[in-house]
């Protein structure tokens, strides 16, 4: 009787302890994965205000380039993640080198592909004031039409019909039919299997090719579109394109 009483208490304690861990849905030790995003244009590291030619043959300069990364995951056989960073939001800003290096703790399970999302899940677009990477102070939140700007590219081109030849693309939209979140899946070179280790940091260098912003799935010439600053069909097209900007350059242990 008394022993069973104790048992009940232990079980209750266990339940309390377990409930604390509700957000950790993957078991096992977790080690560091470091993603390094390297913005590039014309096959070289991006330099602001330098002249480039996009895949449509248009000249362009870049003054601002930012995008959100979230839901960093590891994949093995299926598209169901074997490890995933829940509610991790990162704002990558081409003007801030530190923001381009993202460290996440993930479980040590074999994987052969990396997956992440460009943008912010719908729920965080409708849940009131947020902080950290999602702080509206970062200038990535539409104040007149609540929702996050998933990616932002600004600059100029001699072909732009915008004010002072500038172009401004603020891409967002989270509602059904106008979603701009995109999953990117990057296989490891030669389909090799990898596992995170305690003694080293796995570092993946990811090239972010801005040329594809203007032409990949869709042709989006600067000469015909110099501005997009709201959700809608055009934002969706830019999202289709920015999903193609990413390639895995190298994977190594440090």
């Amino acid at each position: 009787m008394k022993t069973s009483h104790l048992l009940v208490l232990f079980v209750a304690m266990g339940a309390v302890l377990f409930s604390c861990q509700k957000e950790k849905s993957f078991e096992g030790d977790s080690y560091t994965l470091r993603l390094i995003f390297q913005p590039s244009a014309n096959g070289e590291p991006l330099t602001f205000n330098k002249d480039y030619i996009n895949l449509l043959g248009e000249d362009y300069k870049v003054t601002t380039f930012k995008f959100y990364i979230s839901n960093i995951s590891l994949l093995q056989e299926t598209s169901d993640p074997v490890a995933r960073k829940e509610n991790g939001f990162f704002l990558v800003d081409a003007s801030n080198t530190a923001s381009q290096v993202i460290d996440v703790q993930l479980n040590a399970v074999p994987f052969n592909r990396l997956m992440f999302q460009i943008g912010i899940d719908s729920i965080w677009n409708v849940s009131g004031a947020q902080t950290g990477a999602l702080d509206p102070m970062n200038g990535m939140f539409w104040t007149w039409n609540s929702g996050y700007i998933m990616a932002k590219l600004e600059g100029s081109s001699s072909l732009s019909r915008g004010l002072n030849n500038t172009y401004i693309y603020h891409i967002g939209g989270f509602r059904e039919g106008e979603k701009t979140q995109r999953n990117v899946i990057l296989p490891l070179p030669n389909q090799q299997e990898w596992i995170l280790e305690r003694t080293s940091v796995t570092e993946m260098v990811i090239d972010v090719n801005i040329d594809k912003w203007f032409k990949s799935t869709h042709d989006l010439p600067i000469s015909s579109i110099s501005e997009n600053m709201s959700p809608g069909p055009l934002s969706v097209k830019y999202a289709d394109n920015y999903a193609n900007m990413f390639t895995l350059n190298s994977v190594l242990r440090r």
């Binding site: 009131g128 702080d135 509206p136 104040t143 609540s146 929702g147």
Partner: peptide, 29 residues
């Protein structure tokens, strides 16, 4: 909120008048 319903949560409503150039004209920062 708003006449056009553009704001989806009371918490983010003040951002609109705070940052609108013809209202309070300030940056959140």
């Amino acid at each position: 909120l708003h006449w056009d319903g553009g704001i989806n949560h009371l918490e983010v409503q003040p951002l609109a008048p705070l940052t609108a150039p013809n209202e309070m004209g300030e940056t959140v920062e």
